[in-house]
Amino acid sequence: MRIDIITCLPQLLDSFFAASILKRAQDKQLVEVQVHDLREYAINKHKQVDDYAFGGGAGMVLMIEPIAKCINLLKQQRTYDEVIYVTPDGELFGQKTANVLSLKQNLIILCGHYKGVDERVREHFVTREISIGDYVLSGGELAAAVIADSVIRLIPGVLSDETSALTDSFQDDLLAPPVYTRPADYQGWKVPEVLLSGHKANIEKWRYEQSLERTRQRRPDLLAE
């Protein structure tokens, strides 16, 4: 998989992909992440990528020309499955969407900033609009990182145990069950006996029941869906 992220603040993403699971995934050549500085495609020597909105109003808008130049150049090099724009008014991102995107080969993620992008970018370049929640961030960089992280960890070979991702919360519309590790008894706080029994069927049954109960208590909306 290859993920190209377009942003006017690439430094916000530098460290995110340089450590832990995401770094190992790139080192193993399971995914390639390229961050593109939108200012390199600016229309003038001042590296301008934004301008005032027609009709007035507060805030600046990312211009269509730099974005179009960057996307068109990338499309000359490969075919992209999706051009994603991260925006508060996009579809709400969830595990099902992450699963779908993890099966793609090439993705572009466009980060908005200021008051967003020229609407013509959305009309003519973007194929999918995604929101990570009903709130507004200073820019789309954090949202792009969240999407990339949740997608990359699903690629076979990224996690040392490939079944780990399949047992995460939301994979089966349930929250994950409680987990424990050593010691089995800490100041009288004990691990449930079933987890120490070695009886796989009973353990799986317990985990499912715990997932169901936790979902019922904390996210009953998932059960309704």
Rank of each mutant, 00 (worst) to 15 (best):
S102E: 08
A143M: 05
L159F: 11
L101V: 02
A165M: 07
T87S: 13
L166S: 13
L107G: 01
A53M: 13
R128V: 01
D118G: 08
I152H: 07
V86Y: 02
V158W: 02
C111Q: 10
T97W: 00
L142C: 03
L137I: 00
L73Q: 15
Q95V: 01
P88M: 05
D134R: 07
G140P: 06
A148I: 00
P66C: 02
R122G: 15
V61N: 05
T167W: 08
G94H: 15
Y80L: 05
F125E: 05
A143K: 07
Y135M: 01
R78P: 00
D149C: 04
F93V: 02
I64Q: 11
G112E: 07
Q95K: 05
D149K: 02
V136K: 10
A68P: 00
Q171D: 10
E119V: 10
I64W: 06
E162I: 07
S169E: 08
M60Y: 11
D81R: 01
P156D: 09
L92M: 14
G56V: 06
I152Q: 04
K104G: 01
A143S: 15
G57T: 04
G94W: 00
E162S: 14
A53R: 14
T127F: 01
F54D: 13
Y80R: 08
D118W: 06
I152F: 12
I108Y: 03
P88F: 09
K104H: 10
